[in-house]
Design a protein around this nucleic acid. Structure first.
Length: 640
RNA sequence: GGCGAUGUAGCUCAGUUGGUUAGAGCAUACGGCUCAUAUCCGUAGUGUCCGGGGUUCAAGUCCCUGCAUCGCCA
């Protein structure tokens, strides 16, 4: 069946980060895998560009919404080629064909009678761009934006989603593969156990003009989901395009867990109303934390794909993302973890395996594929393991278990390294009568490397091609039907010259201590010396603490706490900090004061309020004195 | 508050339908090799499988309960 994989279209209110990168990398890897499995494939990603937030951000910059969207959208489009990500279509919700498709779809659903006009009254938060329920409010304010929502009564169009609820429940129950992993399927079934409300799909133009006008009422624009989700159809040329019939039955959407509900509930009911089959599958992944902390702008720990690729290269980044995260659950990124994977898996195990193999082929066989003689048990074991690897790899990739698929490949990489030591080709090379054995061993080894490279194509296309070419194979896209046989290396073929595939990365230096290799005898005494200095920290340890000047914008007491104040500070971005200073300072006298803030402290919830940093103060007996500079300075200035 | 997930070695995790002395990788220590990117190979470990109770000839695995962490819903 043709395979059509999509990422969500990413909202242009933020620049590409690790989360976007992961979604897009796995979509690309999956598409490469299915293409190599002989399927026709199509892969689409893009950007979502309408809405209040974009209009406001553009206004703040003094540009038009389209100009603003152009700029951010380009950042996404330009980020992907650096990671060997090759979508067939990069779609934008401002593309003319998309606007037309949204309107056509709305028209159709409207004609069917699944859209109705009704009044809605509620508390609207401009920041969230949505109505909030009373229960969501904290002290009458939106907990995310710390603003009181406005009470708005307005008339809007609604999609009769509830009409399709029973059908959807049946469909999910009848198709275990529809939503995966299973935890998310269960979550959706739990949500569907309650009656669904209909979906508001419009905003009056008076309040929001940056959107796609409703075809049946010029006074309204389409609100988020009927605009965004339709992109999956637009890209195939719905309703008449030649690709639509071919690819739609094989549609697989990759998403992060935050947009599960729209994709698992809104979208299938919309498709049903349109008279279309539901997509084939939804694949839901978890979040990437950074250094075990939520990734967030205010913490300044956002990982950008550009920086990551520059540091580690596209292949290593793709490998890490696919290997490190168990699909579906949250995982953690850190430079330490990345470096460890890079050095141990890529440089030491895989890279060195290729390097030593090609070197031996050069030294002992004149850089040509040798002809094998009789096989021994050890040879056959490696062969069987490599053949099994290909099968397991295919099975796990199909099941979206990328980490397991890769673990299987590395199992065989380990075996190949052991195979070399067990057979010691350098010993065989010393005795001319062992020539046939030497040839057999190196031939077996190279055949094994060929299958390893084959499996790695979807994961790291560029490096896999390097491996492939260095094995003397021709420069065409390999696939699993033609190339998965064990021995397709013609004796006599010339091989590439050995070169490090993944040069080792320098280990992170901890305070320069490890720069000098220590004589073994000196080790014990060094340790003792270090012990005496335990309380001293190195300058590098200090520099990990991000101290900044912050200006207090507002302050309020936290209910039921005598000591805590909730502060909103500028540093330079706005953030919420909880400080235990209520017994020493009143909220009023704090406004406008400048203090020193630990800006990269792990966020913590205190009395229900999440604090993003710590304000420094001096304890003098019973007194508490807030820290500050002796003169005023720009909020956000670094303290060092 | 309701529902659910997770809890296994210092770290990250695997443990299929209950079935020998509970595994892998990383990290650590020691030894070996020299083809290789200071790489590779071997050996050595450490575990109250979150606590408590139960079912069973047999429980990391099934049931009940408590705790912790996380998620979703309200």
């Amino acid at each position: 069946m043709p395979f059509y994989v999509t990422t969500p279209i990413f909202y242009v209110n933020a620049q590409p980060h690790l989360g976007h990168t992961y979604t897009t990398v796995i979509a690309d890897a999956a598409r490469r895998f299915f293409r190599m499995s002989g399927e026709e494939t199509r892969f689409q990603t893009g950007t979502d560009e309408h809405g209040d937030k974009i209009a406001q951000a553009a206004a703040a910059e003094g540009v038009s919404p389209k100009e603003y969207a152009d700029r951010i959208s380009a950042m996404f489009r330009e980020a992907w080629p650096n990671l060997a990500i090759e979508p067939d279509r990069f779609i934008r919700t401002t593309d003319p064909d998309h606007v037309a498709t949204v309107q056509a779809a709305l028209e159709k659903v409207h004609e069917k009678g699944d859209i109705y006009f009704s009044e809605y009254e509620g508390l609207y938060c401009v920041g969230c761009e949505r109505f909030l329920t009373e229960k969501e409010l904290v002290d009458g304010k939106c907990p995310d934006h710390l603003k009181e929502p406005e009470r708005i009564a307005e008339q809007n169009y609604f999609f009769r989603m509830s009409k399709y609820q029973d059908w959807l429940v049946e469909h999910i129950k009848a198709n275990p593969e529809f939503i995966r992993p299973e935890r998310y399927r269960n979550e959706i079934l739990a949500m569907l156990a309650e009656p669904l409300e209909d979906l508001c799909i419009s905003r009056p133009k008076s309040r929001l003009s940056w959107g796609i006008p409703l075809p049946f009422d010029e006074n309204f624009v389409t609100y988020v989901w009927f605009d965004a989700l339709i992109n999956y159809l637009t890209g195939l040329g719905y309703p008449d395009g030649p690709d639509f019939e071919k690819f739609w039955p094989g549609a697989v959407h990759v998403i992060a867990k935050d947009i599960l509900k729209p994709h698992a509930i809104f979208w299938p009911t919309m498709l049903r109303s349109l008279g279309l089959a539901p997509y084939r599958g939804l694949r839901v992944h978890g979040y990437w934390n950074v250094d075990d902390t939520k990734m967030s702008k205010s913490l300044g720990n956002v990982v950008r794909p550009g920086e990551m690729v520059e540091k580690y290269g596209a292949a290593a980044c793709r490998y890490f993302l696919l290997r490190e995260m168990a699909f579906g659950v949250d995982s953690s990124f850190s430079d330490e973890a990345m470096t460890a994977r890079y050095n141990s898996d890529l440089a030491n195990d895989l890279g060195n395996l290729f390097s030593r193999s090609l070197t031996m082929a050069r030294n002992f066989c004149d850089s040509r594929v040798p002809a094998p003689a009789a096989f021994e048990n050890g040879d056959l074991e490696l062969k069987e393991a490599a053949e099994k690897m290909v099968e397991t790899f295919k099975r796990e990739m199909r099941a979206w278990n990328f980490h397991r698929a890769l673990a299987e490949v590395w199992l065989v990489i380990g075996m190949a390294n052991r195979y070399i030591v067990n057979n010691a080709p350098w010993e065989l090379a010393k005795e001319p009568e062992k020539r046939p054995r030497l040839d057999t061993v190196l031939h077996t080894l190279l055949a094994c490397l060929r299958l390893i490279a084959l499996c790695l194509f979807p994961v790291m296309p560029d490096k896999a091609r390097e491996m492939w070419l260095s094995l003397g194979l021709n420069d065409r896209e390999p696939d699993f039907s033609r190339d998965a046989a064990w021995d397709l290396l013609a004796p006599g073929t010339s091989l590439g010259q050995p070169a490090p595939l993944f040069p080792r990365l320098a280990k992170k230096k901890t305070g320069g201590k490890q720069q000098q290799p220590k004589a073994k005898s000196g080790k014990a005494s060094n340790r003792k010396k270090d012990k005496g200095k335990e309380n001293l920290i190195d300058i590098s340890e200090f520099s990990r603490i991000d101290l900044r000047l912050a200006e207090i914008k507002s302050a309020e007491r936290i209910e039921k706490s005598d000591r805590l104040l909730k502060l909103t500070v500028l540093a330079p971005e706005e953030r919420t900090v909880v400080a235990g200073i209520a017994e020493h300072y009143s909220p009023d006298e704090l406004i406008g004061r400048q203090v020193i803030l630990v800006a990269n402290l792990k966020p913590a919830k205190l009395m229900g309020v999440e604090s993003h940093g710590m304000v420094l103060a001096i304890k003098d007996g019973g007194r508490l004195i807030l820290s500050s500079g002796s003169e005023r300075a720009t909020p956000g200035s670094k303290v060092s």
